[in-house]
Amino acid sequence: MTSLAEAAPRFGIGPRSGLLLGAGITGAFVGIAILSQFWTPELPTRMHLINKLKPPLVAGIAGTDAFGRDIFSMLMVGAWNSLSISFLSVLMGLVAGVALGTAAAAVRGWIEEAIMRFADIVFAFPALISAIMIAALIGAGQLTAVLAIGIFTIPVFIRVSRGAALRVWALDFCVAAQTAGKGRLRITIDHVLPNIAGALVVQATIQIGLAILVEAGLSFLGLSLPPPAPSWGRMLSDAQTYLSQAPWMAIAPGVTIAIAVLGLNLLGDGLRDWLDPRSGSQA
């Protein structure tokens, strides 16, 4: 007795459109970043002073900057630099943070206490401060950015992984594994990690979005990749001087950063809802 209208699929904003949109945006950025290593409309580092400060579509898709460089090509290569630094730094934070966090959950006692207080202390330093300190030690550059962002990501993962791991440790299958003679490390690898992986993937996605913002901030201040390698943050900082004459110089990288971070956050939130069995049925 079902009417056709009820049986027909309904269009519009479905429960997973956020996830799909986020995955689409993120996928597009990754694609562009990889493409930029093989092809760009112009050489992003080639100066062409006659063509300087041309608005979008007059010269190139997104116009040119004060040296006549093609902004769109710079954005493409900037995507590679930005994403690779963000990804590497979050990977570093993930590996170190999860190792410490799951160890804290497995061992408990004073070791857990020490790890958590360490996380609190690292949390107290903004990425900017640690970047300046690291830059003072080893000079500005890609490694500085990766280390600075990575270090400030560690405590995030310590907390997330410890909390999730404690919940898993409280379940009976961990006791069952103990009675089978498995040690804490073995149980962490066999049972805890697979069960917290979902939460970690979600957190990592959101952290990459955050890392892009921080990397932009660091390169704005000249603490990340040195010129002439294009980076979104330094493009913004260069645009400052020409805000009234050539607003596209600021708008293009600004919008790009916003869309990239939005895409990653949508992907992270979407993944969380999708992986969490409590939020509705999975088809």
Binding site: L171, D172, F173, V175, A176, T179, D190, H191, P194, N195
Partner: peptide, 16 residues
């Protein structure tokens, strides 16, 4: 000696 638990949801690792 082995053990059987109360809650069959929590005593089996859902990922295995």
């Amino acid at each position: 000696f082995q053990m059987v638990f109360q809650d069959p949801r929590g005593s089996l690792d859902p990922r295995q």
